Amino acid sequence: MNQDQSRTLTQIIETLAGYRVHEKKGGKFYFNFYLNQKMSDTPIEALDLNVRAYNSLKRAGYSNIGQLAEAIAGGVEIGKIKNCGSKSCREIMEKLFLYQFNALPQEKREGYVREVMILNARKHG
């Protein structure tokens, strides 16, 4: 895992936006999916989830990132999957975001993070 991939969502936003982000316990995190076919076909193992989150997704039938992204975009609440509590749900969403962020060319990352921040400000505001 390279340095970019090991950074947390909060660290990325703080670096690009220049201010600290307060995360609410159990708060929802919103972002748009921009997956190409290769990204969609990537196994969920690429998200490097903890065991509980990974096992809950596998038991629910999600084997690749595209299936998971389509389900979430279609309104499936991953927090309602068996053994997928708020902590696992948050981790899954953060790892999906980080996966997508790291797949973007360097010059598009800042714009993407700004888009995500605006989207979340609207949803939480």
Rank of each mutant, 00 (worst) to 15 (best):
Met1Leu: 06
Pro105Tyr: 05
Gly66Asp: 03
Leu104Val: 13
Gly125Cys: 10
His124Gly: 06
Glu14Gln: 14
Ser40Glu: 11
Ser88Asp: 00
Leu104Lys: 11
Cys89His: 01
Ala17Pro: 01
Gly85Thr: 08
Val21Cys: 03
His22Thr: 08
Asn32Cys: 10
Asn102Gly: 01
Gly74Thr: 03
Gln100Arg: 07
Gly18Pro: 11
Arg109Asn: 05
Lys80Pro: 11
Met93Asn: 10
Asn55Tyr: 09
Val113Lys: 04
Lys123Asp: 00
Lys108Asp: 11
Leu57Gly: 11
Phe31Arg: 12
Asn83Ile: 05
Lys95His: 06
Arg20Thr: 15
Leu16Ile: 09
Arg109Phe: 05
Lys58Gly: 12
Glu45Lys: 15
Lys82Gln: 14
Arg122Asp: 08
Phe33Cys: 11
Asp4Lys: 15
Lys28Ala: 06
Phe33Lys: 10
Asn83Leu: 08
Glu94Arg: 05
Asn64Asp: 04
Ile12Gly: 00
Ala103Val: 04
Tyr99Pro: 02
Asn55Asp: 07
Lys108Asn: 08
Gly75Asp: 11
Gly66Ser: 11
Asp48Phe: 00
Asn32Gln: 12
Ala73Gly: 09
Leu68Gly: 03
Glu115Asp: 10
Ala53Leu: 05
Lys87Tyr: 06
Glu107Pro: 07
Arg59Ser: 10
Asp48Ala: 14
Lys80Arg: 05
Leu49Arg: 14
Phe101Arg: 04
Tyr99Ala: 04
Asn83Arg: 08
Leu47Tyr: 00
Cys89Gln: 00
Asn32Trp: 03
Ala103Lys: 09
Asn102Phe: 08
Phe97Leu: 06
Tyr19Arg: 15
Glu14Ile: 09
Leu35Asn: 01
Gly74Ala: 09
Met93Gln: 08
Phe33Pro: 07
Lys58Met: 12
Met117Lys: 11
Lys24Thr: 10
Cys84Gly: 07
Glu110Arg: 15
Asp48Val: 05
Lys123Asn: 10
Gly74Glu: 01
Lys38Gly: 04
Ala121Trp: 01
Ala71Gln: 02
